[in-house]
Amino acid sequence: MPRSAIIFVRLIEALNYRIGRMAMYLLFVLAGVLLWSIIAKAFGRPPLWTQEMAQFAMVSYFVLGGAYSLQLGANVRMDLIYGRWSPRRQAAVDAVTVFAMIFFLGVVLYGGIDSTIYAFEIGERSRTVWRPYMAPIKMIICFGVFLMILQSLAFLIRDIARLRGEEI
């Protein structure tokens, strides 16, 4: 494999590893927001922002950790037949099917970017009483999907290398 491809794979996997590990701490943010909501409700003053903030924290955790979970192989895979194949055959099948994932993520990213631009142009806000701006969470979603596309490309390069008898 060309050295640039190896550097790309290692760089993307290192980036996704670090971002995924940092995204894990968003569960503490989520727990803190929910704890605050419980305490505030116990004193009769439920805050308006906690439910939506918890949703934003969960979406951020899920999307920013997506590439990391792909990297770890924590995604759902039908291992009924796949698990019995040789690593080379798995790489061959993955090198073909990864294009479906890249296409899907590309469509999601295209729609996400369009939606984010729209949110910035009109100053889109949530329709709840709290009314937070929607552009920041949409930017996080686009960034997370972009990281998953990069991880998919790293998988493709890794699978091509395996088919050539090399390991990255």
Rank of each mutant, 00 (worst) to 15 (best):
R162P: 08
A5I: 05
T97E: 08
C142T: 06
L64N: 08
Y133V: 06
V129F: 13
D79H: 13
V145D: 00
Y110I: 06
R84I: 07
A161N: 09
G112C: 13
M139V: 15
Q90H: 07
A95L: 13
M78R: 13
L26D: 10
R131F: 13
M1N: 00
W49M: 07
P87T: 02
F56Q: 15
I160R: 00
F43L: 06
D94I: 08
A31H: 04
M53D: 01
K41Q: 12
F143L: 15
P2H: 13
W49P: 04
I81E: 09
S86I: 08
G44I: 11
L150H: 09
G165Y: 05
F8A: 00
A14V: 11
Q71T: 06
F143I: 13
I113C: 14
M58N: 02
L80E: 12
L48H: 08
T97C: 03
G32F: 07
Q151N: 05
R3T: 12
S152K: 10
I7K: 05
M53E: 02
S126V: 01
L30E: 07
I141M: 12
R131N: 15
I122G: 04
M148K: 00
R84C: 06
F43Q: 05
M134L: 15
F8M: 02
S37P: 07
W36H: 14
V63C: 09
F146L: 12
P2K: 15
Q151K: 00
C142W: 03
I81N: 03
I19R: 09
F155E: 00
W130F: 13
P47V: 09
M1A: 06
P132A: 02
I102C: 04
S60T: 14
T97P: 03
K138T: 01
M22P: 03
A40R: 04
G32Q: 01
F104S: 14
Y61V: 00
G144Y: 05
E52G: 06
W36A: 10
D94H: 08
P47M: 02
A31L: 14
V96W: 09
A31P: 03
P132Q: 04
M58K: 01
F8H: 07
Y17F: 04
G112V: 09
L105H: 13
A91Q: 02
V63A: 02
R89A: 14
A42Q: 14
F143W: 08
F8N: 08
A57H: 02
I160A: 03
F56M: 15
A92P: 03
A67L: 10
